[in-house]
Design a protein around this nucleic acid. Sequence first.
DNA 1: AAGACGGGGCG
DNA 2: CGCCCAGTCTT
Length: 376
Amino acid sequence: MEMLCFLLFSLKMGINSFYNELMDKLQTDKLQKFQQSLLNWYGGNARILPWREDPAPYRVWISEIMLQQTRVDAVKPYFERFLQEVPTIRDLAALPEDRLMKLWEGLGYYSRARNLKKAACIVMEQYHGRLPSDRKSLQTLPGIGPYTSGAIASIAFGAGEPAVDGNVLRVLARLSGNRGDLKDKAVRADLNALAEKLLSRQKPGDFNQALMELGALLCVPNGRPKCGECPVQPFCEACRQDAVDQIPVKTRKAKRKTENRTVFIIRFQHRIALRKRKEHGLLSGLWEFPNRYGHLSPEDIGKVLMEWGICPETITPLPDAKHVFSHLEWHMKGYAVRVKEKRETCSFVWARQEEIHRSYSIPSAFHAYLKALEKV
DNA sequence: AAGACGGGGCG
DNA sequence: CGCCCAGTCTT
């Protein structure tokens, strides 16, 4: 652990040239021990994941995009299904938008899917259908930033590039005992430099994944990290200081805004009114039940329905529902509306229940009312 | 530099 | 309920 201190120290202060030779040798020994401990642990404890079984570039790419801000368990079923239906980059470049969104439905951050397809088209046109292997080229593709480029380059192509995500930042902050705020750019720069120093040049892909796996399984963000099982605990400064509960430091983000909405399940015979969201902004291009800003009074409800060309036969309140986005909260009141006749005056689509399930991507925000649908 | 962008799991 | 997560893009 002294060596990690030294590493950090030397990054900040520069290495005293008088000790350079000696320290370099010592550093190399310690570093190799560190890498070996981590890699050995990874070899015996890595979860079996579909994209690890066969780390072909396309598979690694898809997995890394899906894994952005998303847990492994959430990704697994999506990954399998996606690869089955869209097995190659060529297929992805040719995939219709609605199929793409259907495959992504429920996974969140939908621009990831759109960027994926854009990137696939670029790869077809500019790279002969092969994903580029170097970090810089990868990073020019939409949806691939500093983390993902490093992950793909190292895991799929064996390049000596670090891959630093939130998980690795936490692990490295603890290892090095860095009490700086992870939101701070300088702190991130330090930890990125540390990742570069620690990286195994022989097995960069495994090493990067090992660091992330450590963060996911042992050096966890919530609850007490399992330091007793940690393969690099002897190298950990936070553990030595008994400060794993104080590191990393993260400033809390501003409170979410709340937004009231009123949602309508409008039924004509066995069909339900759906509406396509605008092409820009929140949940863009996905389908939703017609809804309005605010909690509408009975009079307002009448007006809105009239605006839509809806002549209600019955209006029944549904249970309230809430949905939390990372930056926004919807507090929803719902109403089931029955109509006798449907006019073609508004931009709704009238879908059968099976069609909704099969062909329309409805974000989770509306799932409470999607469920209500089945009971009525 | 800050805000937008989903959804789910956990304490 | 608040925090966090295998981040990136836009403004």
